[in-house]
Design a protein around this nucleic acid. Structure first.
Lengths: 333, 333
DNA sequence: CTGAAAGCGCTAACAA
DNA sequence: TTGTTAGCGCTTTCAG
């Protein structure tokens, strides 16, 4: 059915080896034969079977990436950066999107194993469950991997993250500087290392400004914007706090809607600081003060590290990259 | 290095064939041997080499998808739907993101050929260039494919789209009903079939309401939100139109910012209708009137059709699915 | 129920 | 410069 180098060899009256050499730009070949073979290949509409060559070469030029949810701009942006960079390096991306947004460890482990079975050369992961069982799976991983947005304790590995302790610190500090003495902090995924770092950052800000611990009140939300919206709404029914800070910009937009629906003004009545600086933040009304993460760059960097690890298998060095966060002051504070 | 069925066979003292049977849940095997083999496999941390089995089986259980830009929520949503559905069917996704957002035909053809080389079982594509050269490449495509969001003339193939002629028709009609007699329509990708359909829809609305052709003025923008923002701003410097309609919600948000920056009110001074109904539309301030596309569902449907075509290779029937669009009335009109 | 042999399409090593 | 041979890891005959 499909045309192979064998077919080309027959047509050209040479061995398959010669065809292989012509196709792979090897030097040890007569320019004339090479030209003839290439023409025949084109004529027969030949498409090399990467599967066969990968099997032989024991490398696939393929990276596996696990993404909890591509409809979240946060991850979509990371994936964008990763896939562009991979393409630049001549690597393909095999994508695994989790259906439970990472709430199911078994699914996550499964995704990992499937990708390994596919014989990808390396993996980009964000362990949603930084618990023993997933980390165990990771420890047995036979190929190089780089974590993004996570740096689990108790696992020595390559990762690229942001310094979230600093991120929530500058967000809260900014609000304190503006004279606010009370912040409601809406967060999610309370168990992840990144959330823990953020809470630490809040506490640091409290300390720095000599405020009581109760200055920051935490509200836990699930993954939907709507939950942030509803919880803010309920809160505002009883009480109007001075300021909100949120785990991401999407939640901030939900909070903003609740505030505006209540007939309150931002920032005159309530201040608001988001997180991530997704594209919309700048164009939102009012433009959102937020903490900028370098999402595309995180994806790119993770790929760079990964590919370096792939080429340099025996290097046992571990890469830790911490990207910088920046407070973007706009009109909600 | 890696453990293979050969290693398991040696360990179990049987042939590789028996191991293969145990691993693939074949019936013709003693339950006892099967159990023993499975245990050994687990002990040795065996991971099947999909490459080898794919090569042998001539199918990879893999779908290729080409996406112009994953940082655009429009495509991110489609990809989300597609990858979830693929996973449900037990298929993997190989992702190819274009670096020029589809402005480079050669890159697009290249992406196509690479995916074919990878021996994916099927392809999901959105031809950015509906010109001869890309369609030619498609005509030579040896594997099943389904187009999403495009239905190029002169190519008989499977596709899933929305009825954009109807979409812009309901958007414009809505504005006309509200008494507006003049709409500035900001669009992009003027050459695509989907844009042409939209312009047709505008003309239909004009006809229906017996208005002059000049009632709808077209402004062409590039792919950035900023361009929509800037162009609206320049326009508003000289003239305040009654209404805007945009090619997508992101552009609408850019337009809204320009209007608000100018000190004008939406919808009292200027009305605005977006397109797509991305998540943010509902939470935007003011909540955006828009035309809802079923993006996740489009991705899912495309995968469903594709997998059906893969299982049913000899069926020469061509599937055309046209999803329905819906006007979502919120507060910008 | 189990095993031996062949081959998927390709490339590396060696020989001519 | 070119051809021959072997083998990557797996599954599908076919034979025991």
């Amino acid at each position: 059915m499909n045309v192979t180098i064998k077919d080309i060899a027959r047509e050209a009256g040479c061995s398959i080896q010669t065809v292989s050499r012509a196709l792979n730009n090897k030097v040890e070949i007569d320019p004339e034969t090479k030209k003839r073979i290439l023409e025949i290949a084109k004529k027969l509409n030949y498409s090399p079977n990467i599967l066969a060559s990968s099997l032989r070469l024991k490398k696939t030029k393929t990276l596996g990436i696990v993404i909890p949810d591509n409809s979240d701009p946060f991850y979509a942006e990371i994936l964008q950066g990763a896939s562009k960079k991979a393409k630049e390096h001549g690597y393909q991306i095999i994508l695994s999107v989790l259906s439970q947004r990472g709430c199911d460890v078994d699914e996550e482990i499964d995704a990992l194993h499937t990708l390994i079975s596919q014989r990808v050369d390396g993996l980009l992961l964000q362990p949603e469950q930084e618990t023993g069982i997933y980390l165990d799976a990771l420890r047995e991983c036979p190929i190089p991997y780089v974590l993004y947005n996570r740096s689990p304790e108790g696992l020595l590995c390559n990762y690229v993250t942001h310094n979230h302790e600093y991120g929530s610190f500058i967000a809260c500090s900014h609000l304190f500087e503006k004279g606010k003495t009370e912040i409601y902090y809406l967060l999610r995924k309370p168990e992840t290392s990144s959330t823990k770092a953020r809470i630490k950052g809040c506490e640091n800000a409290i300390k720095k400004y000599g405020l009581p611990k109760s200055s920051i009140k935490i509200i836990e939300c699930d993954d939907s914007v709507n939950d942030a919206y509803q919880k803010t709404k309920s809160l505002l029914d009883h009480y109007v706090p001075q300021a909100f800070h949120t785990w991401d910009d999407i939640m901030a937009i939900g909070v903003a809607k609740a505030i505006i629906d209540k007939g309150l003004r931002i920032p005159q009545d309530v201040s608001l600081v988001g997180y991530n600086d997704i594209l919309i933040a700048r164009y939102f009304n009012p433009p959102l003060t937020t903490v900028r993460q370098q999402l595309t760059f995180m994806g790119e960097t993770a790929v760079d590290i990964l590919i370096q690890k792939i080429s340099d298998k025996n290097s046992k060095r571990v890469e830790h990259v911490e990207l910088t966060l920046e407070l973007i002051k706009r009109s909600t504070t």
